[in-house]
């Protein structure tokens, strides 16, 4: 009896000791993640909610915001500049996202060979990707120069008279796309690591079955890479919808609004026209649309993404 009570009390003591240990760990965890949680609340969650509110006001960066209901959304939907901005960003995204994915994957497939010097090529293709920013934009403004730019000089050697890239409304957005392709190397390491993760047995088995190069690409490589494809697709769409620096610096949205991207028009609304309500409505719409698009992509992904490939591909 006494022995029993003794063990009981000792287990209770041990349990309490474990509890306090657990509690100490939980408190430590809360403290460790506290700054990040605060940052999330203060710099993401709160601003997101605030922009929903601001989008229903006539705030102009000065004075008090007055509630105006959905008036900003209404006037946006009847604003032809808004629709032009939607069109520009959509066109850009629809062209550049597949272009990035296909060209980076093609490069990775070419480089994924046991040949000498591949590391050097990887360096060369990757380098422009780390040089994003205003300096690169300045360089490309110069490259696109009508009379003395590199591009028209090059075309001149081929006997072609190039257009006035950035000043021609038919070519301006295309010029920005062309420039965006320069940073395609950014996605190389992900593809290459994915390619190296594909078990060679799969290819050997396919070869025994007499599968040719294309069959192997279509039935082994692409399915095995599909989780990476999904990741790249989501990230690239996110990237493309945020087109801003290039049109701001290269064309100012012109000529004839041909490069007025969504974010550029949003920026103009907020900081040039001081229509913060309009701009907030635009950012809230962008948020909703990207939420829907991302959700849709993930929802549809089981149709073409082989998630088991990821697990099998891991070491």
């Amino acid at each position: 009896m006494t022995a029993n009570a003794l063990t009981q009390s000792s287990t209770r003591a041990r349990r309490r000791w474990r509890l306090t240990l657990q509690r100490r760990e939980a408190i430590a965890c809360a403290l460790f993640i506290a700054p990040a949680v605060f940052g999330f609340l203060a710099f993401s969650a709160l601003p997101l909610l605030a922009s929903a509110y601001l989008s229903m006001t006539d705030y102009s960066l000065a004075g008090v915001p007055n509630f105006v209901g959905l008036a900003n959304y209404q006037s946006l939907f009847s604003d032809r500049f808004f629709w032009q901005a939607v069109r520009v960003t959509l066109t850009y995204a629809i062209v550049i996202v597949p272009a990035w994915i296909v060209s980076s994957l093609a490069l990775a497939l070419i480089m994924n060979q046991n040949l000498r010097g591949m590391a050097a090529f990887r360096t060369v293709y990757y380098l422009p990707a780390v040089l994003s920013g205003v300096g690169v934009v300045m360089l490309w403004i110069w490259i696109f120069n009508y009379r003395s730019g590199l591009l028209n000089i090059g075309l001149g050697f081929l006997g072609i008279q190039g257009p006035n890239w950035l000043r021609d409304r038919n070519w301006a957005l295309f010029s920005i796309m062309l420039m965006s392709l320069w940073s395609v190397g950014w996605y190389l390491p992900i593809w290459l690591s994915g390619l190296q993760g594909i078990p060679t047995e799969l290819y050997e088995a396919a070869e025994v079955d007499g599968a040719g190069t294309w069959a192997r690409l279509w039935h082994i490589t692409l399915p095995m890479l599909s989780p990476i494809m999904l990741y790249n697709l989501v990230i690239n769409i996110l990237f493309a919808t945020q087109l801003f620096t290039e049109p701001l610096m290269m064309t100012g949205g012109g000529p004839d609004l041909a490069t007025l991207s969504y974010v550029l028009y949003m920026y103009n609304n907020a900081f040039s026209y001081l229509k913060v309500g309009h701009a907030s409505a635009m950012s809230w719409l962008l948020f909703l649309v990207s939420l829907v698009v991302t959700a849709l992509i993930f929802k549809l992904s089981p149709l073409w993404v082989h998630f088991e490939a990821e697990r099998r591909g891991e070491r």
């Binding site: 922009s51 996110l238 919808t241 945020q242 949003m266 907020a270 913060v276 950012s283």
Partner: peptide, 8 residues
């Protein structure tokens, strides 16, 4: 998209 947060 990070730009969504710029204005707020």
């Amino acid at each position: 998209p990070g730009v969504v947060l710029i204005i707020p």
